[in-house]
Design a protein around this nucleic acid. Structure first.
Lengths: 234, 234
DNA sequence: CGTAGTATTGAAACGGATCAATATCTGTGG
DNA sequence: CCACAGATATTGATCCGTTTCAATACTACG
């Protein structure tokens, strides 16, 4: 079993300064999880699992990015979340996966079978507490997104989306350059806008000289003041 | 310390049939929590805590209903969630409460200080697991609402809202009668609509003979088939 | 029973959805 | 490395539904 250190490091996912949490796993905890986990590498666009399949595993992202979505009867697709390195996904609803998960980029996953994980969590209260903190964190993030993206204006939504990406992919190589791995239609399906509206909103940000788009998957922030203003003004 | 049985019974909050969870607390666990909790009764419109206040307690709802919200710089109010009997709220962000919580009806709360609770959870892995399940459940519900209310049509949103209320307040005295404790503007702030749009959408449901509104706080479903169709069609 | 807050109703305007056409990208094979 | 084809993204024009503003009706609480 390879070393899970880099991928499981962030499992508790707490913001710095959160007094109630120890940010990283102890060596012993990491070993415990490593003994249960299987590393899986997937290429872009590979389906990790489908909605309705028996939920046998929990997944931790080591590297890359996946999207969680559901296709509606109307044919529309709703993207519920994008998951980044350190995130945990695979939560079940009545024993089945609630959404379909698909890789966006090349992704490394650590797959942990649920039953042995549950035993380990019951055995080690401190390890379980890390998971409790992590799920709490993801819950808060879901609520935060719910209110952030309740705003109606497309330009504000798209700006907020870019801002969110910048925060979550904190490891920016170039400051002010945000990597946008997902497609425009993914963004649209996540924000509840049409693809055309995302395109026009992006164009509007460029027209106002707030951002530049060197290529489709990079957003460069030109005017951070007005960018932040746009994100907060709602 | 009074008996917390009725209020803590539902703490794991799992849907029936969820194989991964025991739905209720054991007697011993209930006693453990009861020893930590203080019962608090609040009248309608009382603020339980304000956003930004040090988060010292976790709350379990015994009876009644509260709302969780944040007021935006623009003066608009975003309601993030309504909480029902058995729900747990009071999650912290960097040691502070993330939202303001206010009672809608007369409400009974069980207030549990965080530090002793954490000790109890670390001591009893099974008790902690109940909380892990509960937070997981609330996380899933937040995600589900995110996609449910991403739809644009006001009529569908309002119908879905009523449907959600019916499910959560399952203890209907009269079948097909849904109690709607919150105000119309609360509904608007929750759904991301204007109060006028909620009013018009409700009127449209009445006009189509799908529901009747005997009084402002009661919705009677007249045509369950078309009601369900409206909720699912998105 | 009165009054302040809440809810409804009407008219106008804005903004995003939709449909249709064009442009651009991506990844595959030569 | 380049060319090609299918998918993805952009752009334009029109339509529809929600927002907004303003006025009126209703509730609920003291």
């Amino acid at each position: 079993m390879e070393d899970l250190t880099p991928s499981l490091r962030a499992i508790s996912g707490c913001a710095p300064g959160d007094a109630s949490a120890q940010p990283i796993l102890t060596d012993a905890q990491r070993e415990q999880l490593a003994a249960l986990a299987t590393r899986v590498d997937v290429r872009p666009r590979v389906i990790v699992y489908r909605e309705g399949t028996p939920a046998e595993h929990l997944f931790v992202i080591g590297a890359g990015m996946v999207k969680t979505f559901r296709d509606l009867p109307s044919g529309k697709r709703r993207i519920v979340a994008f998951w980044y390195p350190g995130d945990v996904f695979g939560l079940a609803e009545r024993g089945k996966y609630a959404y379909t998960v698909q890789a966006i980029t090349a992704t490394t996953l650590y797959r942990i079978p649920r039953a042995p994980l549950k035993d380990a969590l019951l055995r080690d209260g401190h390890l379980q507490f890390k998971f409790l903190i992590k799920v709490t964190h993801e819950f808060r993030e879901a609520q935060r997104q719910k209110i952030s993206f309740m705003r109606r204006d497309a330009v504000g939504k798209v700006a907020t989306f870019f801002s969110m990406l910048e925060q979550q992919l904190g490891d920016a190589t170039v400051p002010d350059d945000i990597t946008v791995p997902m497609s425009r239609s993914d963004i649209a399906n996540f924000l509840g806008l049409s693809a055309e509206a995302v395109s026009r909103a992006t164009h509007e940000l460029i027209r106002r000289r707030i951002v530049a788009i060197p290529d489709l998957h990079t957003v460069r922030i030109l005017d951070r003041t007005r960018f932040a203003l746009l994100v907060s003004k709602m």
